[in-house]
Lab assay of single mutants.
Amino acid sequence: RLIESLSQMLSMGFSDEGGWLTRLLQTKNYDIGAALDTIQ
Score class of each variant (00 low, 15 high):
9 M>N: 00
7 S>M: 13
37 D>I: 15
31 D>Y: 06
36 L>T: 03
22 T>L: 05
18 G>W: 07
11 S>G: 05
21 L>F: 09
21 L>Q: 00
15 S>K: 11
18 G>P: 03
4 E>R: 07
5 S>I: 09
20 W>S: 03
27 T>V: 11
2 L>P: 07
8 Q>Y: 14
30 Y>V: 06
33 G>A: 11
14 F>L: 07
39 I>N: 00
21 L>P: 00
21 L>S: 00
23 R>I: 14
22 T>P: 01
22 T>K: 05
26 Q>K: 14
2 L>E: 10
34 A>H: 09
24 L>E: 03
30 Y>I: 02
17 E>N: 12
34 A>V: 08
14 F>D: 02
10 L>D: 02
31 D>W: 09
8 Q>R: 10
1 R>G: 11
25 L>Y: 02
28 K>H: 15
4 E>A: 06
17 E>V: 12
35 A>D: 02
26 Q>E: 15
5 S>V: 15
32 I>M: 06
15 S>T: 15
36 L>P: 03
23 R>S: 06
22 T>S: 13
16 D>A: 08
37 D>Q: 15
13 G>D: 05
13 G>Q: 05
32 I>L: 07
6 L>H: 00
32 I>P: 05
9 M>E: 01
25 L>V: 02
26 Q>R: 08
13 G>C: 08
2 L>I: 07
35 A>I: 10
12 M>N: 04
11 S>L: 07
29 N>H: 08
16 D>I: 06
25 L>S: 02
18 G>S: 08
19 G>H: 04
27 T>G: 11
24 L>T: 00
11 S>K: 14
40 Q>M: 15
21 L>D: 02
3 I>L: 12
16 D>K: 04
39 I>E: 03
15 S>H: 12
17 E>Q: 11
21 L>A: 01
1 R>V: 11
20 W>Y: 10
34 A>C: 09
11 S>H: 09
28 K>W: 11
14 F>V: 03
39 I>D: 01
34 A>L: 14
38 T>K: 08
36 L>Y: 06
26 Q>W: 03
20 W>H: 04
28 K>M: 13
4 E>Q: 11
18 G>N: 12
26 Q>G: 08
5 S>F: 03
19 G>N: 06
31 D>I: 09
9 M>H: 01
1 R>P: 11
17 E>I: 12
18 G>K: 08
40 Q>A: 13
32 I>D: 02
13 G>S: 05
21 L>H: 01
12 M>W: 09
20 W>I: 02
40 Q>Y: 15
20 W>Q: 00
31 D>K: 00
12 M>V: 03
8 Q>A: 12
9 M>S: 00
39 I>A: 04
12 M>L: 10
6 L>S: 00
11 S>M: 14
30 Y>H: 06
22 T>F: 02
14 F>I: 05
26 Q>H: 01
14 F>R: 00
37 D>V: 12
32 I>V: 14
29 N>W: 12
1 R>Y: 09
30 Y>W: 07
13 G>R: 00
15 S>V: 12
34 A>F: 06
23 R>M: 13
7 S>E: 11
9 M>A: 03
14 F>S: 02
37 D>L: 13
10 L>K: 11
10 L>F: 12
27 T>E: 15
20 W>E: 05
22 T>Y: 04
10 L>P: 00
33 G>K: 14
36 L>Q: 01
31 D>F: 04
4 E>L: 11
12 M>E: 04
2 L>W: 09
37 D>R: 12
5 S>A: 14
21 L>E: 02
1 R>M: 14
11 S>R: 11
21 L>V: 04
19 G>P: 01
7 S>V: 07
10 L>G: 03
28 K>Q: 12
17 E>T: 09
19 G>Y: 08
19 G>I: 00
30 Y>E: 02
26 Q>N: 09
19 G>Q: 06
40 Q>S: 13
40 Q>I: 14
39 I>K: 00
38 T>Y: 15
7 S>P: 02
29 N>Y: 10
2 L>F: 08
18 G>C: 14
8 Q>V: 15
14 F>H: 05
10 L>T: 06
37 D>E: 15
20 W>A: 05
18 G>V: 02
5 S>E: 05
39 I>L: 09
29 N>P: 05
16 D>Q: 05
17 E>Y: 12
10 L>V: 11
37 D>N: 11
32 I>K: 04
35 A>S: 08
9 M>L: 12
22 T>W: 07
7 S>K: 15
18 G>F: 11
34 A>T: 06
8 Q>P: 01
26 Q>P: 00
38 T>D: 11
12 M>F: 09
18 G>H: 10
28 K>V: 15
33 G>M: 14
14 F>K: 03
34 A>G: 09
38 T>F: 15
3 I>E: 15
30 Y>L: 07
29 N>V: 07
11 S>D: 09
20 W>M: 01
23 R>G: 07
23 R>K: 12
17 E>R: 08
3 I>H: 15
36 L>N: 03
3 I>R: 15
27 T>K: 14
23 R>W: 06
27 T>C: 15
26 Q>D: 07
22 T>M: 05
10 L>E: 08
24 L>V: 04
22 T>N: 07
23 R>C: 14
17 E>L: 11
37 D>G: 12
6 L>W: 05
23 R>T: 14
18 G>D: 13
12 M>P: 00
32 I>Y: 05
26 Q>Y: 07
6 L>Y: 03
36 L>E: 01
31 D>R: 01
